[in-house]
Amino acid sequence: MSPADFLTDLLNPDLAFLPKALLVAVMSSIVCGVVGCYVVLRGMAFIGDAVAHAVFPGLAVAFVLGGSLVVGGTIAGVVTAILVAVFSQSRRLKEDSIIGVFFVAAFALGIVIISRAPGYAGSLQQFLFGSITGIPDEDVYVVAGTGLLVLGIVLLLHKELVTISLDRETARSLGIKVFWLDLVLYVLVTLAVVISVQTIGNVLVLALLITPPATARLLTDRLGVMMALAPAIGGLGAFVGLYISWSWDYPTGGTIVLVLTGCFLLAWCWRLVKNKTQSYFC
């Protein structure tokens, strides 16, 4: 299928789910790209993966009760983050051990809960790998509203989030409330993950959060440019991934991830060539 045919399908009223799927995919990618910059700066990719596991029981409960996935996932993520923050005060265990215990336990709880729902196998596959073509209209508004909320909070707290990401001790000496900003960042990651689950699934959502910012980091040393490039790369990857998926009948979530991974590899090669060229002339 040519790009022109794809654009024609986007405008086809009989395929109303297609532009809706594209809109949600791009919005999710942009939000994840912005929030993911802080995750990459702090070297906390494990946290992003853990949060993706932590929101699962909330998603499962919301699905079984017919409630909002965003609300259910957010509550589960925040509760788990608070538990990790509290139990991490113990000096006998490091934070990564506490995270490993609670976040994996949350994922296991989600599997048990969803197993009690009718159509268990189909529901589990939808949560794990996404169901972008079946997104209801109201979820588009929820994703848009939640995305704007996340971006608004990022705009308000950008300086503080950057400070704790680059130098936590300096942030404490400046009187910045590091503990509360950590919780805010966990919540932002949680919201970004929740609105992306239907697009790409719980298993692959980490790719939207990490790969575009990591790619942008390879392309620039300036934070401002990185935070502009990351959502742009994520949005472009979502568009190209959906186009390939629709044209050749590939799984949407997996295709988007592979496109973003391809962008990362190209950026890596570009950085490698640039470094070798600079070394040669120096």
Rank of each mutant, 00 (worst) to 15 (best):
T277D: 14
I113G: 03
L223G: 07
T146D: 04
L174V: 15
I176P: 03
Y243H: 06
L22H: 09
Q126L: 11
F103R: 03
F102R: 00
F281H: 09
A267R: 13
L161G: 06
L15C: 10
G77S: 08
Y120R: 12
L209R: 06
V257R: 00
V193Y: 01
D182T: 05
W248M: 12
V84D: 01
T211N: 04
T146A: 09
S131L: 08
G100P: 10
G152N: 07
T80F: 00
I98M: 14
L206S: 07
N12I: 11
F281R: 05
P19K: 09
D137A: 14
A228D: 10
V203C: 11
E95G: 03
Q125E: 15
K20T: 12
G241R: 00
S245R: 00
A16C: 13
N202K: 04
L109S: 11
R116Y: 06
L151Y: 02
Q125G: 14
V187T: 13
L83K: 06
G241M: 04
Y186N: 07
N275Q: 15
D49N: 12
S90P: 05
V61M: 04
L124G: 01
G224Y: 12
W180D: 03
A106P: 01
A214S: 10
R116F: 03
W180F: 13
V39D: 02
V154L: 14
I98W: 13
C282H: 15
L185F: 12
I47A: 02
G110D: 00
G237W: 02
F87P: 03
L204C: 13
G262S: 08
A238H: 02
S68F: 04
S29K: 00
L124R: 04
F239M: 07
I111W: 00
A230N: 05
V140L: 08
I244M: 12
V26G: 12
A228Q: 08
P57E: 09
T170V: 15
G147V: 02
I244S: 08
V187M: 14
V150R: 08
D167Q: 10
G152H: 04
T80S: 07
L242V: 10
L22D: 01
G110N: 05
A85D: 15
A121Q: 13
V143A: 06
Y250S: 01
Q278P: 02
T199R: 06
L236P: 09
S88R: 08
L93V: 14
G175K: 14
G134R: 10
H53P: 04
G254N: 06
P251F: 09
G67V: 15
S115T: 12
Q125Y: 10
T190Q: 08
G241V: 13
T133K: 14
D14P: 03
G43Q: 08
G224T: 10
F281D: 14
A207E: 06
F264C: 05
L149H: 14
A81E: 02
I113W: 08
E95L: 12
A60W: 01
V31M: 05
K159H: 11
V35I: 15
L188D: 03
D167L: 10
I111H: 01
V24G: 05
R92E: 08
S68M: 06
D249C: 11
A192R: 01
G100K: 08
L218G: 00
Y250H: 06
V205L: 13
L191C: 12
H158R: 06
L23A: 13
D5R: 14
I153M: 11
V162P: 03
